[in-house]
């Protein structure tokens, strides 16, 4: 079961995330729980596999907004970095960075369960 402590342990800036929810822990946890349905990770992966940097940027950018609002710092940091690279459509091998982000998704899913 997802808890504030578990998120804190994960490295989330829980105080900041809670503050955005008027310190309503239930609501904050509900929002983090909605990450289970978040399509942003898969969209990013799919776009990068097709080397569609425009779509990849859009997906990364949207994901960054969500993770930032939830203050899920480890995932947010990685997504922010790839967003900046994709913003300038940097032609490079994204596989390592993508793997890191997908790892974050996995960790978060585990936390949710």
């Amino acid at each position: 079961m997802l808890t504030i402590e578990a998120l804190r342990e994960y490295g989330a800036n829980v105080d900041e995330g809670l503050a955005r929810c008027f310190n309503n822990a239930d609501f904050y946890l509900k929002l983090v729980g909605m990450l289970g349905n978040e399509k942003g990770f898969d969209k990013l992966e799919e776009a990068l596999e097709k080397n569609d940097l425009d779509a990849a940027f859009e997906a990364a950018h949207a994901l960054k907004g969500v993770l930032g609002n939830l203050s899920l710092t480890p995932a947010y940091t990685q997504v922010s970095e790839i967003t900046e690279l994709l913003r300038s459509r940097t032609n490079m091998d994204y596989s390592e960075r993508l793997a890191g982000i997908m790892e974050q998704q996995k960790i978060l899913k585990e936390l949710l369960n």
């Binding site: 955005r20 929810c21 509900k30 929002l31 909605m34 990450l35 942003g40 907004g65 969500v66 939830l70």
Partner: peptide
């Protein structure tokens, strides 16, 4: 279009 952002902002504004 992001349900989490929508929910969060909606929650803030509903006050």
């Amino acid at each position: 279009d992001e349900p989490i952002n929508q929910e969060m902002l909606g929650f803030i504004l509903k006050k």
